[in-house]
Amino acid sequence: MSATDQEDFSFQAIGTGWHITTPLPLPAAVRTRVLGRVEKFDGEWSRFRADSRVAAMARRPGRYSFPEEAAPLGELYRQLYDLTNGAMTPLIGGSLERLGYDAAYSLRAAGPPLPAPDWESVLTWSGTVLTASAPVVLDIGAAGKGLLVDLLAQELAAAGVGGFVIDAGGDLLARGTGPVSVALEHPYNPAQAIGVVDLEGRALCASAANRRAWGDGLHHVLDGTTGQPVRTAVATWALAETAMVADALATALFFVPGALLQEAFDFSWLTVFSDGSAAYSTEFEGKLFA
């Protein structure tokens, strides 16, 4: 797709702006399918909606059946929970609410940081069935946006759309296109870039402490073992075959070195630290500016 031969379908969903770029305009029926898939996903997984299944889990324990995407999502979270020694967890929702990132967006801490509950003590995640022994505030934000990118890509492919780029607030997936040049946003100045990546046929996802930040040093990337915001890494990027995996690994890079994650996952990565230094994989496709 050339810069002069593109159509853009834009909408708001799960708290961010989305852009689906295609060579030709998406038919109305395909747009309706895409938006319907978004609504279904939000109705299952959002902790900000009182009518979601996740909200029901926060009110009462029990056995809950989720859509089929829950199975690979649970496996990914379990693997990263173990690799990070519990720092990255889907049970971080209560910790986020404690610091003010709640359904009402109060952005005011209700008390000192609260560690997430131990997975084994409250949750069994078996395929598409989640069983909670106590009310739990599930939050899949570390991988959820990427997962929805993948689900929308499936919808587009099923509709016969051969080439597209999905941009979900900076998390991107390119399929059937030529290289797409993507700037890597400076973690302290959104108007500047620290580098560029040519994305083709893969997903690129980022996580940054300056996104969804509030209060005195509070942001959305919390260590599940302490409930406190991470202070060392400030921005990460991960490239993988699927957006769900790239999204999750971009968060995991806040807790453990990329080299350790590469022992379990096929991906490339970049981490920028609070002291201005950076680390990256030898096969990282991007170019960093001097």
Rank of each mutant, 00 (worst) to 15 (best):
S2I: 02
A3R: 15
Q6A: 11
Q6E: 15
Q6C: 11
F9V: 00
F9R: 09
F11T: 11
I20S: 09
I20H: 05
P25I: 00
P27Q: 14
A28Y: 14
A29D: 15
T32C: 07
T32S: 11
T32F: 10
V38M: 04
V38D: 00
D42K: 10
G43E: 02
S46C: 04
R47K: 01
V54C: 06
A58V: 10
R60F: 07
G62V: 02
Y64T: 10
S65W: 14
A70R: 04
A71V: 08
P72T: 08
L73H: 01
L73P: 06
G74Y: 05
L76V: 06
D82A: 15
D82E: 15
G86P: 06
I92N: 10
S95D: 09
P112R: 07
P112T: 09
L114M: 07
W119Q: 02
E120W: 06
W125D: 08
W125F: 11
G127L: 12
V129E: 05
A132S: 12
V136H: 01
V136M: 06
V137Q: 12
V137D: 10
I140E: 08
G141I: 04
L147G: 02
V149E: 04
L152G: 00
E155W: 09
E155Y: 12
A157M: 13
G160S: 08
V161L: 01
L172G: 08
L173Q: 02
A174Q: 00
G176K: 00
S181K: 13
V182T: 01
L184N: 02
H186Y: 06
P190K: 09
V197N: 08
R202T: 05
C205Q: 05
A206V: 04
A206F: 09
A209K: 06
R211T: 02
W214A: 00
H219L: 09
L222G: 04
R231Q: 14
V234C: 11
V245C: 12
A246V: 08
F254R: 02
A264Q: 15
D266F: 13
D266H: 15
D266P: 09
T271P: 05
G276Q: 12
G276L: 09
E283I: 13
E283N: 15
A290C: 15
A290I: 14
